[in-house]
């Protein structure tokens, strides 16, 4: 992606709009890591960049800037926040606009059509010694990686984050400025989910038992999720206590049932939960399983339309009834 265009558009946003802050991607000081950066003046915009390494979602930071967005702007006098958003981020934004009542015009969206992002765990596993000046560009199914005077070529498939492989919305669905030409969408793919559905019930149970037994209950998946924003989270509440603090299989299962069910019809598919998981649980499998069912049966896709009513706040008299006595 053209850095110059990104920086120029960011500067234009600052001169054109009453923008208090721009949330974008900046380079971290080590290896392949990327940091969120908060730009408050026009000149700072030079630090912005975008590359396939930008795998984190910035939407979470938007709701952390509560003072500006959610408190009615009493002190800031109607200032706006600008954010760099990929396809999945734009879906999360649409959900937030609908659920939290954030006025659409409070957020200036710099839309980035996304060709998929790199899984940091994969690339660091491949090049553990990369320290300085890393740079990754993409062309024709290959990643060109340069660091410390070395350069490498790696096929895209080897480093692509898992959730990006199944992405159906690479283009931002809502934006004020588009930074690149739109890219082709392959459409949603659920082949891995269908594969799992074919397994016997006991087999699937064993699979998840093995996974959930590893869960540390660090709550990182919840904290990183742009759509888990409740101040009073039921996963931590003591009365009533839905999930005990003890870390064992049954509590972990309860935790993951609650977490994934709360994202039913809401998950934007950004893969943050999987990205931050310290024990690499395939959490997006749960989210995408529900996404698939909801899409097939209720013809509903979370965050695809600003005017949609939330899934569980609406119904159709023709909803499936054959499982009921």
């Amino acid at each position: 992606m053209d850095k110059e265009k990104l920086v120029n558009e960011a500067k234009a946003v600052f001169s054109r709009e009453d923008v208090a802050c721009l949330i974008g991607y900046g380079k971290d000081s080590i290896g392949f890591r990327v940091s969120p950066i908060f730009i408050r003046t026009r000149d700072e915009a030079d630090q912005l960049f975008f590359s396939p390494l930008c795998s984190l979602s910035l939407v979470n930071y938007l709701t952390l800037e509560k003072g500006v967005l959610l408190e009615g702007n009493k002190e800031t006098g109607g200032e706006k926040i600008a954010i760099v958003a990929r396809g999945c981020d734009s879906r999360a934004l649409i959900q937030l606009f609908a659920e939290r009542g954030i006025p659409r015009e409070q957020v200036v969206i710099l839309g980035v059509p996304c060709r998929g992002t790199i899984d940091l765990k994969k690339i660091e596993g491949k090049f553990p010694d990369a320290r300085n000046c890393t740079e990754v560009t993409e062309a024709e199914g290959m990643y060109y990686i340069r660091f410390d005077n070395e350069s490498h070529e790696v096929p895209k498939e080897e480093l692509l984050a898992d959730h990006c492989k199944h992405c159906a919305f690479p283009n931002p669905l809502v934006y004020d400025v588009l930074l690149e030409d739109l890219v082709d969408s392959k459409g949603a793919a659920y082949s891995d989910i269908e594969e799992m559905e074919k397994m016997a019930l006991e087999e699937r149970h064993e699979y998840w038992k093995d996974k959930f037994a590893r869960c540390l209950r660090c709550y990182a998946c919840r904290n990183a999720c742009p759509l888990c924003y409740c101040d009073d989270c039921i996963l931590e509440r003591v009365s009533p206590q839905w999930v005990n603090r003890s870390v064992n299989l049954s509590e972990n299962l309860m935790f993951h049932l609650a977490r994934s069910y709360h994202l039913a019809g809401r998950c934007a598919g950004c893969g943050e939960c999987e990205r931050v998981c310290p024990v690499n649980l395939p959490l997006m499998l749960l989210n995408r399983k529900l996404e698939k069912d909801i899409k097939n049966i209720f013809e509903y896709t979370a965050g695809s339309n600003l005017d949609d009513k939330p899934l569980f706040a609406s119904f159709n008299p023709k909803d499936p009834n054959d499982f009921i006595f």
Partner: peptide, 10 residues
């Protein structure tokens, strides 16, 4: 939806 989720986790 919840029945589908239960089935998926076994």
């Amino acid at each position: 939806v919840f029945r589908n989720l239960l089935e998926f986790v076994g």
